[in-house]
Amino acid sequence: MAEFVLTAGAWLGAWAWDEVAPRLRDAGHGVHAVTLSGLAEKQGAPAGQQTHVEDVVGEVERRQLRDVVLVGHSYSGIPVGQAAARIGGRLARVVFVDAEVPVEGESFASGWWQGQAAFEALLAGDGGFWAPLASDGFAGQGLTEEQIARITGGATPHPGATLTESVSLVRPLGELPATYVKCLLDGPEPNPVVSELLRSEHWRLVEADTGHWPMFSQPDELARILLDAAPGAGTADAGAAG
């Protein structure tokens, strides 16, 4: 059976997986939801980009996990991708859930749609943190009002250094066994970096008819996709492409 290590995106902690984790455990797998430094119950802890990589690697090594399925959602694809490249033979698969992916020498801020300078100015205006979205920022993502309230109620400011420090990859991502989950309400196509990685024989694309936070909007479907990524499960059926 697999050991799932789950890491949610910006502003969120391990609690974001509360509806997905039991479904994976019921299927007989180990589940380890990670809160990254500086967020949720770890709020106030100093954190940079490599701190978050170490949070994920440390979870795997401390628990001596094998047959690991690393799962990174949104921002967390960046540290999780780096961690996947570091844990060697412990890795079974990495799953990027509508996620950013690490690019050597770049950062989350590098790919900001308004440019890095604009993003860094945004952080500076909030004391070096990325403030959580307000409720209206979740519109059109397949979430109920109750689900939006749950996200916004649990969200904490995201430490800015984790978003501006550069990536360091010890192995090309295209060599890793990977699944990319594209949530279609957040855009019909993966970004160009992901599209290029999907040309690798080791990567596959799975499309989900929901928004950017599927652990809230469609926990059953996300759990199914993750179970399909477990060792020996084979390629996902419905919604799979590429």
Score class of each variant (00 low, 15 high):
G44L: 06
A45R: 11
A45W: 03
A45D: 13
P46W: 08
A47H: 02
A47L: 02
G48P: 11
G48K: 08
G48A: 11
G48E: 14
Q49M: 15
Q50C: 12
T51C: 14
T51L: 14
H52V: 13
V53L: 15
V53Q: 15
E54Q: 15
E54G: 09
D55G: 04
D55Q: 10
D55W: 06
D55I: 07
D55K: 06
V56Q: 05
V56D: 06
V56G: 02
V56C: 01
V56P: 01
V57W: 02
V57Y: 01
V57H: 03
V57C: 02
G58V: 03
E59I: 01
E59P: 03
E59M: 11
E59W: 11
E59A: 12
E59N: 10
E59F: 01
V60P: 08
V60G: 09
V60M: 12
V60E: 09
R62I: 01
R62P: 01
R62T: 14
R62A: 15
R63L: 15
R63H: 15
R63N: 15
Q64L: 14
Q64W: 08
L65D: 07
L65F: 11
L65H: 11
L65Y: 12
L65V: 04
L65P: 11
R66W: 01
R66I: 00
R66Q: 06
D67V: 00
D67C: 00
D67N: 09
D67Q: 01
D67M: 01
D67T: 00
V68L: 09
V68G: 08
V68Y: 12
V68N: 04
V69H: 00
V69S: 00
V69N: 00
L70K: 05
L70A: 07
L70G: 05
V71H: 07
V71S: 07
V71D: 10
G72C: 11
G72R: 12
G72K: 05
H73W: 07
H73D: 03
H73T: 03
H73Q: 09
S74W: 06
S74Q: 08
S74I: 05
S74Y: 06
Y75N: 10
Y75S: 06
S76L: 06
S76G: 08
G77V: 13
G77R: 05
G77L: 04
G77A: 06
I78T: 09
I78A: 06
P79H: 03
P79I: 02
P79Q: 05
G81K: 07
A83F: 10
A83D: 01
A83H: 08
A84T: 12
A84L: 10
A84W: 12
A85K: 00
A85H: 00
A85N: 00
A85R: 00
A85Y: 00
A85G: 08
I87M: 12
I87L: 04
G88L: 12
G88F: 13
G88V: 08
G88H: 06
R90Y: 05
R90V: 07
R90H: 07
R90G: 03
L91F: 13
L91Y: 09
L91K: 02
A92L: 03
A92R: 07
R93M: 10
V94E: 00
V94I: 10
V95H: 14
V95F: 10
V95Y: 12
